[in-house]
């Protein structure tokens, strides 16, 4: 099927199989390999991207469902010279080790902070990130980073 999606501000017209998953299209067709696939049951959250402003697990979104949507991936929120406050907070707080869960974690965290309008406490962050698995950090520094980014995003 023919779909047109806007990914990180760029419009793309693609011919994809009906059963193609958004995660695979991002990775294989658009070369956006920052979106990772860590499980096959939609549990790990490594593949989280934003679709029309909301966090979705792109491994369970059909590419066809994204037809006409605006998709933002980890590659679209900042770059080393101009990091998104959440990216900067992850670095500042050592909220990542192997880095594999990080893109999904950051995308989920941004969505979480945006939706909460700056009102998150530690428990909220922990609850809000329970759909994203990290095996390296024990979440301690991720929680710290999200709370720090919340302040930065408020003042930004």
């Amino acid at each position: 099927m023919e779909i047109s999606i806007t990914v990180n501000g760029r419009s793309e017209a693609l011919d994809v199989p009906d059963n193609a998953l958004l995660a695979d299209v991002l990775r294989e067709r658009l070369g956006l390999t920052g979106t990772h696939v860590g499980c096959d049951t939609s549990q790990c959250g490594a593949c989280v991207v934003h679709m029309d402003g909301a966090a979705v697990k792109s491994c369970t979104v059909l590419a066809g469902q994204a037809n006409g949507a605006e998709v933002t991936t980890i590659e679209g929120i900042g770059n080393p010279d101009n990091l998104h406050p959440m990216q900067a907070a992850f670095r500042e707080n050592h909220a990542l080790q192997c880095g594999f869960c990080t893109p999904g974690m950051i995308m989920s965290a941004i969505d979480l902070v945006q939706k909460a309008d700056g009102q998150l406490d530690e428990g909220d962050v922990r609850d809000g990130l329970e759909g994203n698995l990290c095996r390296c950090t024990g979440y301690h520094n991720i929680v710290k980073a999200v709370l720090a980014a919340q302040d930065d995003m408020k003042s930004a």
């Binding site: 956006l32 390999t33 920052g34 979106t35 990772h36 991936t73 980890i74 590659e75 900042g78 770059n79 080393p80 990091l83 990216q87 992850f90 670095r91 500042e92 050592h94 990542l96 880095g99 594999f100 990080t102 893109p103 950051i106």
Partner: peptide
Amino acid sequence: KRKEDARFITGTGRY
């Protein structure tokens, strides 16, 4: 702060 973070937080790691 870690050198490796620059690529991991921007989705440019290479697994």
